[in-house]
């Protein structure tokens, strides 16, 4: 049995080497492609130029910020984490949309509120303006067949022009 003991240290060394190598391989930073960088940079805005997404901005500063995105990606940051990092460093203006908090809620609430109010006013106006059904029945002649009706309406509209 002792004859086989010499294998043990070799096995241990091999095992240790294997584990270390595997760890080293898993820890090797992945080099992100241009597309991966652009996918994140496209969701960010140049902190110094106005209204230019980071993925298409040609300034030297933006090239450096794209490198920073690449670096963060290689460190394992997610897109959301990178966006949060940029917002922390350069302010909310780097985000494509205002974050949903405080005054910024107004940007999301006001337009739908206006549209709903418009629809409500329109609905109320329809109800107020609308002629009662009975009067309507008297005012409107029975609807004839489609072909004749269409021609009549068309001629009428052309006359009214």
């Amino acid at each position: 049995m002792k004859r086989w003991l010499w294998i043990l240290p070799i096995l241990l060394i091999a095992l240790t080497f294997g584990v270390v190598t595997a760890q080293a391989q898993s820890g090797t930073p992945h080099t992100p492609t241009d597309d991966e960088v652009n996918a994140v940079a496209g969701q960010l805005y140049c902190p110094v130029c106005e209204n230019i997404p980071l993925d298409v901005c040609g300034t030297q500063a933006c090239a450096q910020w794209r490198d920073l995105v690449r670096e963060k990606l290689s460190q394992g940051y997610t897109a959301d984490e990178i966006k949060a990092y940029f917002a922390e460093q350069y302010g909310d203006r780097v985000l494509a949309e205002p974050p949903r908090r405080g005054l910024n809620w107004l940007v999301y609430i006001l337009p739908p509120a206006f549209i709903l109010a418009g629809l409500f006013i329109l609905f109320q106006a329809f109800r107020t303006w609308r002629i009662p059904e009975a009067e309507q029945a008297q005012a409107s002649p029975p609807v004839p067949e489609v072909g004749d009706e269409y021609l009549r309406r068309l001629e009428e509209e052309l006359k009214k022009r």
Binding site: D92, V94, L95, E97, G102, N104
Partner: peptide, 18 residues
């Protein structure tokens, strides 16, 4: 809105395509 935000909070925001 970016102007209003800047006036009220001093923080400029971007309202972009999304």
């Amino acid at each position: 809105f970016p102007l209003i935000s800047e006036l009220v909070t001093g923080q400029k925001v971007t309202v972009g395509p999304p």
